[in-house]
Simulated scan of single mutants.
Amino acid sequence: MKRKIMMLLALMILPNLLWGASISTDGATNVLESIKTALFAVAGITITVLIAYVSYQVMHKGRPIDEMTKIIVGAGLLASATAIGGVFASFVS
């Protein structure tokens, strides 16, 4: 019984795979484009928030820029990671 079901499924699926009748990559491409756009947006937002926060801390609260180094490096790494993810998403599509 299992063998008959497997043969029936193979006969139904194999022609579609061979001729590509049911394979469409438009949806996957759209999803990857959306992911890429979102990742680049997150990178831009991260850098913008970083600049605003560090500027506020240095200019208004009088903190030295040396104290802000960890925040700058951390936000830079986060923004770089999201941008690299966006680049990988564009390579896949």
Rank of each mutant, 00 (worst) to 15 (best):
M1L: 12
M1I: 01
M1C: 12
K2G: 15
K2S: 15
R3N: 10
R3K: 13
R3H: 10
M6L: 15
M6W: 02
M6V: 14
L9R: 07
L9M: 13
L9K: 09
L9V: 07
A10D: 11
I13G: 06
I13T: 10
L14F: 08
P15R: 01
L17E: 06
A21F: 10
I23Q: 12
I23A: 14
I23Y: 07
T25Q: 13
T25K: 07
D26C: 09
G27I: 11
A28N: 11
T29Q: 12
L32Y: 07
S34H: 00
S34R: 00
I35A: 15
T37E: 14
A43Q: 04
G44Y: 09
G44L: 09
G44R: 05
I45W: 02
T46Y: 04
T46P: 00
T46D: 04
I47M: 13
T48K: 01
T48V: 12
V49I: 14
L50W: 03
I51F: 10
A52T: 08
A52I: 13
Y53K: 10
S55E: 05
V58L: 08
M59I: 12
G62V: 05
G62R: 05
P64Y: 04
P64E: 08
I65K: 03
E67N: 11
E67F: 06
I71G: 01
I72C: 02
V73I: 15
V73A: 09
A75P: 02
G76I: 05
G76E: 06
L77D: 01
L78T: 03
A79G: 02
S80P: 01
A81M: 08
A81D: 02
A81Q: 00
T82V: 08
T82P: 02
T82Q: 05
I84R: 03
I84T: 09
G85R: 04
G86N: 00
V87K: 06
A89Y: 04
F91Q: 10
F91I: 14
V92Y: 13
S93H: 07
